[in-house]
């Protein structure tokens, strides 16, 4: 089988690196935001709850692609100029973080109140209760939905193609311009690469879940 476009595979490898970089950085941003906003939504201070709820509602209701356009193309008019990677990481992180906050909140709320009361009975401080009793149990509940969310994040990194950041999808389009007749093979391979990446995330989270729930 003679497929000349395969000579361009190094380009796809470069794109893969960018995709992985954006995925990793954006998931860090999203995780931090999710933890902060998720905990803040359970705060006893109405103002903190209000701010967190505002963040979650705002960024869950906004279309990610429009947000990305806005951050990259419109923000410079307000004097804030961001690099492509920063804009992508920020937009994806803000968007996925809002969904993650809901996972954090609902997982913590799902812990039976008896656990909380037992912590009080044992005279643990509020911080100890949260860190040593509630969170370890909530974390086990959070894992499967967080795994799904990370797959959503990975998929959404393909949108950086729109701001011409040279990720996997962008490089595939470049290769396609050079080897037009191989279009189906190029996009087919691209789909398979994304599927393999998602499967890696899925398997990793399955293993993590098994580890975190070993005490059960």
């Amino acid at each position: 089988m003679n497929a000349p476009w395969l000579e361009s595979l190094p380009l796809l490898a470069d794109g893969l690196l960018i995709t992985l970089q954006v995925t990793l950085l954006a998931s860090l941003v999203a995780l931090l935001l999710a933890a902060a906003a998720g905990l803040a939504r359970l705060s006893r201070y109405a103002i903190i709850r209000g701010i967190a709820t505002g963040y979650v509602e705002l960024f869950r209701s906004c279309s990610l692609l429009v947000l990305l356009f806005w951050v990259y193309f419109a923000l410079p008019f307000l004097g804030i100029e961001l690099s492509k990677v920063t804009a992508a990481v920020l937009a994806i992180g803000l968007n996925i973080g809002a969904y993650g906050a809901e996972i954090v909140r609902s997982s913590i709320k799902a812990i039976p109140s008896g656990q909380h009361e037992a912590g009080i009975a044992l005279n643990l401080s509020p911080n100890e209760r949260m860190l040593r009793i509630i969170l370890p149990q909530a974390a086990a509940r959070m894992l499967p939905p967080f795994g799904n969310l990370l797959i959503e994040l990975l998929k959404s990194t393909s949108l950086v193609y729109f701001i011409t950041l040279s990720d996997l999808t962008y490089e595939a389009m470049v290769i396609r311009n050079n080897y037009y007749t191989w279009t189906p093979q190029i996009f087919g391979s691209l789909l398979i690469i994304y599927f393999i990446l998602s499967s890696c995330v899925f398997v990793t989270f399955r293993l993590l879940e098994r580890k975190l729930t070993a005490w059960r």
């Binding site: 797959i151 998929k155 691209l190 789909l191 998602s198």
Partner: peptide
Amino acid sequence: EFIRSTPLLVQLFFLYFSLPML
């Protein structure tokens, strides 16, 4: 599983650019 694990954008490219060739 396959459709859920791959980006909508790439699926659209595949449908729009590849299907007419296949």
